[in-house]
Nucleic acid binder design. Structure first.
Length: 411
RNA sequence: GCGUCGGUGGCAGAGUGGUCAAUUGCAAGGGACUGUAAAUCCCUCGACUCCGGUCUACGAAGGUUCGAAUCCUUCCCGGCGCA
């Protein structure tokens, strides 16, 4: 019935971690796996061939962005997401995913023009300082670009200000046109700062939308034969809501599951521990938008199989590279004449010959290549980290593997 | 030599009597970034500071004025034009 099969090949005795094989119509994904994000059908700064050399097995694109530009029909005419973006190896198409646009409910809604990120710092509410994505003037003019009601979300295009509406059915329809192997039900990603009552309200709305997304998918027999749909668990930082959401979403019959963001770093693990036990063992679990190296290992330990995150590429473009000894910001003065490898303890294919001083120079002088190299390095780093976790799971040494990494990276 | 325009913080370049330690951009230093409104954004950027200010500053030296980066005089330096 579903064009997706998942089998577990190894389990950790001390945690919920498992290693598996996820088989799609367009190839196999060994899990746990890191999924590079190519929002607009392109991983920023990195070509498909480079991604494959880095070990990427699957990429994730975004419904909202591709709907606005170039339009889902263009992607469909281009043969679907994978063919459109040239995501194939030796002439064989590779696996793809699309996100539903649910994250944009948050990033263009509650987070618009503000400092909020989906992962709150500690217990306190984020203060309005530091990063703002947009002009304050524009933000105050528009307020926000996404407004939620029970039936769906009305968006103002960030590109031209035009008005658009997403419902669960519309999101699924667009994702059918995009044609990824796996896609997500339309959900509401809430701000972590919302109170309990709102987290519950949004979660219940997400449940209704999940049901509608699934029905819309099943009604399209052709799409049901070729694509799989994942339901998304919400509930913010509250473990009771997470458990309730997992139970509800698990009962609907999805092909896989996503766990959505919106918590503080401290209760990320608690949210997983509350939700994962209610998810069927034989279905893949995707930790949406996560993450940082330590968070990925936490996710694996709690039984998650797939991870996508923009951090690797965004941090790289902005000059920060991962190393076994923690992140290094290459634009800092001290790296101007540091002729050591990007990470002396990590070899990433295609970046072996580049020194910190060289990439720092490229980044400072505005050469695109600097962004590409740093993005490749970070993607290679995080993919190797996850691949290493899978190998450790197969060898039964996952907890040592995790502890060693954490000690080195955060120590 | 005469005429003319100009000399402002690391650079470019605003300001043309008080609200100027001086707009802005770049450079520089620091910070942020977790389903990408992000090759982005934030902070600092003369010195000292008990963070309230204090001091030294807009080629140099004088002067006018309650008050000058801004007006006047002379000098120095540069561009252009004429000899």
């Amino acid at each position: 019935m579903t064009p997706l099969s998942f089998s577990i090949v190894a389990r950790d005795s001390k945690s919920r971690a498992r290693a598996g094989v996820l088989t799609t119509r367009n190839g196999v994904i060994k899990t746990p796996a890191f999924v590079p994000v190519g929002t607009k059908a392109g991983v920023k700064g990195v070509t498909p061939a480079q991604l494959q050399d880095l070990g990427a097995q699957v990429v994730l694109a975004n419904t909202y962005h591709l709907y606005l530009q170039p339009g889902e029909e263009i992607v469909k005419k281009g043969g679907g997401l994978a063919d459109f973006m040239g995501w194939s190896k030796d002439g064989v198409r590779m696996p793809t995913m699309t996100d539903s646009g649910g994250f944009q409910v948050f990033s263009l809604g509650a987070a618009f023009g503000r400092t909020i990120t989906k992962i709150a710092k500690g217990e306190e509410l984020p203060r309005d300082q530091g990063m703002t994505v947009f002009d304050e003037e524009v933000a105050s003019q528009h307020g926000q670009l996404a407004v939620i009601d029970d039936a769906g979300v009305t968006f103002t295009s960030h590109l031209d200000g035009s008005l658009h509406r997403f419902t669960p059915e519309r999101s699924v329809e667009i994702q059918h046109a995009l044609g990824a192997d796996m896609f997500f039900a339309f959900d509401e990603c809430t701000a972590p700062t919302e109170p309990y009552a709102y987290q519950r309200e949004a979660m219940e709305r997400t449940h209704r939308w999940a049901d509608r997304s699934l029905k819309a998918h099943r009604q399209n027999l052709e799409a049901s034969r070729t694509q799989s749909i994942f339901g998304i668990i919400q509930g913010g930082r509250h473990t009771d809501l997470r458990a309730e959401s997992a139970r509800e979403i698990a009962s609907l019959g999805f092909d896989g599951f996503g766990i959505g963001g919106s918590f503080s770093k401290e209760d990320m693990q608690g949210a997983l521990q509350a939700a994962v036990p209610f998810l069927p063992e034989d279905k893949p679990r995707h930790f949406l938008g996560i993450g940082e190296p330590g968070d990925v290992l936490t996710g694996i330990a709690e039984g998650m199989d797939l991870f996508d995150c923009v951090a690797a590429t965004r941090l790289g473009r902005h000059g920060t590279i991962y190393t076994k000894r923690g992140p290094v910001h290459l634009k800092k003065e001290q790296y101007k004449d540091d002729f050591t490898p990007l990470d002396p303890e990590t070899t990433v294919q295609g970046t072996e010959l580049f020194t910190r001083a060289y990439v720092a120079h490229l980044l400072r002088s505005g050469e695109f290549l600097g962004q590409t190299i740093a993005s490749m390095h970070n993607l290679g780093f995080i993919i190797q980290l996850v691949d290493g976790a899978r190998e450790a799971l197969e060898k039964g040494t996952f907890s040592e593997y995790r502890e060693n990494f954490i000690r080195s990276y955060y120590g």
